[in-house]
Design a protein around this nucleic acid. Structure first.
Lengths: 174, 174
DNA sequence: ACCTGAACACCGTTCAAGT
DNA sequence: ACCTGAACACCGTTCAAGT
């Protein structure tokens, strides 16, 4: 188990390298194997399938998205930063978007990111339900901006408007 | 040209059928050919490549998204309807999302949709620049909601908040 | 436990050759 | 103008067999 986990880790890293270089098409079991000095068939000892490996790779890069500290007082800039970090990670690894089209991701890293976002929204004073919706809206917009290749100033406009709307809802409660 | 265009049209329709049935993986030139009673190689007379065919198919279904009339007075419900129509089209043909990851779409149908959205935003009284940003924000959110599999009530929250923000910007101008 | 070799059932694309 | 056949260089996955 310790040895095997290490191998799987190596395989995922090599897969990410391949994906970053040539996109989703360039991840083939044969190519990946030869890069690791191994047969394509041998990969199946460590990984269930190409499909599964892709999901593992996607969750891994998701885990590289920085999560800003929660102790700051302003929730808006934190949300903006998280959206921007997520968007730029998705643009840096566009194959993650392709991975999402084959199956909704919910690896541990992705879940940790979602929970962090939710925590920020709750800290703003929104009700639990509104915070959940606000958090989901932010990821939705960030993911959409990557897939739709939305230019940065447009992203900023959309996010600001969204948060303005959320803030109005918040103000209406007090 | 008349005959050939008809053939290309048939090929695209058959491709869409295949894609709707089994997703992006199930569109193969060989399978498509055999469904049309033709060799895979023969398809290349009508279509440049599989990649190209996929983009043609995506633009075709984009063209099936209804565009609401512009004569209504309320821009908000029109925008909400357009976002909802787009989202449900994307969910009905999830392979369009995969197509977007291989290349930003800009077929005629897609462009017509974008222009319609822009026209609605401009009719609201926003400046040209703000209208462009608002329109882009709406597609971004709709596309994101399909890829992120955002549940419908969450989509509604996000879109309402976004439009609240836009409306505030509009009110500030007058 | 981990890996190889060979096999199966596929791919996209090109291109000479047919009609 | 439109299509076929054959070929090339690939795929993912399984599985007996090796160590």
């Amino acid at each position: 188990m310790p040895r095997d986990v290490l191998h799987q880790e190596q395989i995922i890293q090599a897969a990410i390298a391949l994906l970053d270089e040539g996109g989703i098409e360039s991840l083939s079991m044969r190519r990946l194997g030869s890069r690791l000095g191994i047969t394509a068939a041998a990969l199946y000892w460590h990984v269930k399938s190409r499909h599964d490996l892709l999901l593992l790779a996607a969750d891994t890069v998701w885990g590289r998205t920085p999560l800003p500290a929660l102790d700051g007082l302003e929730w808006r800039p934190v949300l903006l930063a998280m959206a921007d970090n997520l968007r730029s990670m998705l643009l840096r690894h566009p194959w993650t978007l392709a991975a999402m089209t084959v199956q909704p991701l919910d690896g541990p890293a992705r879940n940790r990111h979602d929970e962090h976002l939710l925590a920020v929204c709750e800290a703003s004073g929104l009700t639990r339900r509104d915070a959940e919706q606000a958090a989901q809206s932010v990821v939705t917009f960030a993911i959409g901006s990557a897939l739709a290749a939305t230019p940065r100033p447009y992203v900023s406009f959309g996010l600001q408007s969204l948060l303005d709307g959320v803030e109005a809802r918040l103000a209406a409660r007090t």
